[in-house]
Write a protein that binds this DNA or RNA. Sequence first.
DNA 1: CGTCTATTTGAATGTACTCAAAAGCGGTGG
DNA 2: CCACCGCTTTTGAGTACATTCAAATAGACG
Lengths: 192, 192
Amino acid sequence: MVYSNILKNLHKHISLTQEEEEYFLSLLKYQEVSKKDVVLHQGEVCKHLYFVNSGLLRAFFTGQETKEATIMFAMEDWWITDMHCFLQQSAAMVSIQAVEASTLLKLSKHDLDSLYSTVPAFERFFRILMQNAYVREQVRVLENLSLPAEVRYTNFMKKYPQIVQQVTQKQIASYLGITPEFLSAIRATKRL
Amino acid sequence: MVYSNILKNLHKHISLTQEEEEYFLSLLKYQEVSKKDVVLHQGEVCKHLYFVNSGLLRAFFTGQETKEATIMFAMEDWWITDMHCFLQQSAAMVSIQAVEASTLLKLSKHDLDSLYSTVPAFERFFRILMQNAYVREQVRVLENLSLPAEVRYTNFMKKYPQIVQQVTQKQIASYLGITPEFLSAIRATKRL
DNA sequence: CGTCTATTTGAATGTACTCAAAAGCGGTGG
DNA sequence: CCACCGCTTTTGAGTACATTCAAATAGACG
């Protein structure tokens, strides 16, 4: 059923009693989105934390002068939200959009807080999630600082081969922090 | 005494009983380091999580071909380690060095784990710490991707005015991902 | 089939880098 | 306390990486 993925995800890090599990599931809302649907609009209050049950989402920032920047992709079995704005319940700095038709399970801030107080194991679960997210972002900063675009592109393909299949080059370019034209040029040199 | 800063830091997010507090403090090791002392050497196992009681530390990566990259600065009241390698108890990818004479309180992985199991409030505390760290890194990625070096430098000075006083421009440049020469050029244009 | 967007290609430009050398500054030893 | 040494910062010339703009081609989707 719809909950098997998220339960498997939980069980990677914590174990729960039957009751706790049921309580957790009762807080989740299920949502289906089509390709290109925007789950969260930049500027609106970020109300939910999303678990990607199936499909693929993308979080991106669009500035006035600045080019669009892809903050993250979230594939099946990943969690995603605008974390800062979710925690503050403030206006989202990024938009989150479905790259392809996806099914989501979402949890509100209020429900997450009540989860923390009634089932302490979730403090542990999200600690581990946040830890991993922190480490991932730190590695990404390091790569952005120290590696040329070509190497970053190669690493991206190695690390996320599934994502490469599903998203456009334009989106990959905006994740790597380069223009689509330049990514195209990089690919051209590799073909020789 | 030496523990007042770290207790204040804890109390920002959790409250503890007398006993819990004493247990926590009993796990900490105190360390004094002089300017330029290396607290953690790249390549050696990262055994501790450090709380900066006073002073300023810097984490940086040195590659063979790549220029040195500063991962983070940690000033008074901050926590720092090579998080990935600390969690895995594996070889550190970065070095951590004292920018100036500093006093540290350190916690081993083993002791942190026992802290988690005996005092669950610490799951919450470090969840919040990791959350904040994640959000900080994500903002940094976004700025690196979307803003030119000059703006990143201005933002850095606004965000961390104290750090700017204490570190060299070379170190700031390596945090921003530019060469010292180019940072110097940026500063020159601002003086006109 | 036609429209819309993504991708490629190319030329001109700009941003940031390398290398080299001079100037500034801080610390250390005589 | 001053002189020297080493490192940081500045300056400048030449270069490389990446961008902008424009136009052609290719793909996706209704």
